[in-house]
Write a protein that binds this DNA or RNA. Structure first.
Lengths: 231, 231
DNA sequence: GCTTGAATTATTGTATACAATTTGTATACA
DNA sequence: TGTATACAAATTGTATACAATAATTCAAGC
């Protein structure tokens, strides 16, 4: 009845990845070898190999003699993030438009359908993962092995930052999310039309949107009430 | 007398890294666990961990059930390389100029001194490694964790491509290498002056030089002899 | 009461034994 | 002669035992 070890290992990896992307495992949190090997029915050897794989992809950090912990997400990284993201995403979008196969375009449409569906459910975790999936596909489309590593790391923290600076919207889907959805649609159109410039420009728009979202979180719109009023 | 295992492990990693960068281990060549664990006095467990670390950094590839082999270097990767390199190196140079500490600038000067020294010795392997070291330092200076992963992968293949397309020069140091040396000096000056634009422009020049070198290798200058002449 | 330091405990790192998979080889058959 | 299949050998993956290292506790001294 028990699945082969190979499967258990990838189940563990997938589990940790989603936990990290959705911030269920917080940055800096450390991973307990004993507990996880117990929980997933793996001995420590393959478990530690999984940790190393995740470290190579940037999900966790391995400190000698002190085990693995979830990668940091500091103010410094936030700054670096918004510096690097427009350039890398722009390059990925441009290359995606130039190189995407028809099969990949179908995958992107599937991803977008899942994203739109997630918008309806109001499940912010599902939404973030669906968005992550969408951009992962654009990365596959671009297919440049030198740009991909940086892009993947950006995707990790894109998801985590989105969760951090997400504020639940009172009623219906927020304007920001509707814009994001429309931008995704425009990206698909640009890629399908092989219009690299348009795709790159859309990447910029997408980042403007992300920056705005965070700014409005840090500096919320002033309440429309006179000072000192009691509710 | 035997050193602690921790050291043996890093010795192994360093050894493999230099072997791969200098093409002593060729792309696609596979690494023998048994032989290496024997040679470096390590059991297979830490050895396999080292393989995974190197895989995460892009030196080797791990194929399930079939061990590790040195990362590929195909025509496709060559194309991708020259597409990505100017953008990434430009960004690194720009950020290096903006963020380098004085201590790091000293390190860069040390690296350049070593590079110049290697030019004199006519040892192409030492030269390539010294050049690699120089650019590694610029990466540290930039200090952007999102751009670094792609930059590191470019550095690996920068070294390997240089070795591949290097043609020994008849007498003295080749013009290309002298130009490269001068560009390095200019980079140091730009970084020290905090001139990000100049630093970025120098990255472009550096790439033009690399492209020229490869083009002259692929398309050698025509021999100045009439057809059919006998030597 | 706080700091320092030794002893204890917990956790991480390595080695080895065993299981599972893949690869190579020889033989049978078309 | 070429292909398929069964067996053998080699290699890779996992589990567990042991060693080394880091963290914690508790007591003694300042």
């Amino acid at each position: 009845m028990t699945k082969p070890a190979k499967d258990r290992k990838s189940v563990l990896s997938d589990h940790l990845i989603t936990q990290i992307l959705t911030m269920a495992l917080k940055p800096g949190e450390d991973l307990d070898e004993a507990a996880l090997s117990d929980a997933f029915g793996l001995s420590r050897t393959p478990l530690r190999e999984a940790f190393r794989d995740l470290a190579g992809q940037g999900y966790v950090e391995l400190r000698a003699g002190r085990g693995a912990r979830v990668s940091d997400l500091s103010y410094k990284t936030l700054h670096d993030f918004f510096l690097a993201a427009p350039m890398i995403y722009g390059a990925i979008q441009r290359l995606a438009a130039e190189n995407a196969t028809l099969a990949q375009i179908d995958l992107l449409k599937d991803a977008q359908r899942a994203f739109v569906k997630a918008l309806d459910t109001n499940d912010s975790v599902a939404r973030s993962l669906a968005n992550n999936r969408f951009h992962q596909v654009t990365g596959e489309m671009a297919g440049n092995i030198y740009i991909l590593p940086s892009f993947q790391r950006l995707l990790i923290d894109h998801a985590r930052i989105s969760v951090t600076f997400y504020r639940p919207h009172p009623a219906g889907t927020s304007e920001t999310l509707i814009k994001a959805r429309d931008q995704h649609d425009a990206m698909i159109a640009a890629i399908e039309a092989r219009d690299a410039n348009a795709a790159a420009a859309l990447a910029d728009d997408h980042w403007q949107l992300s920056r705005d979202q965070i700014q409005s979180f840090v500096m919320p719109a002033a309440l429309d009430l006179p000072m000192g009023s009691t509710s």
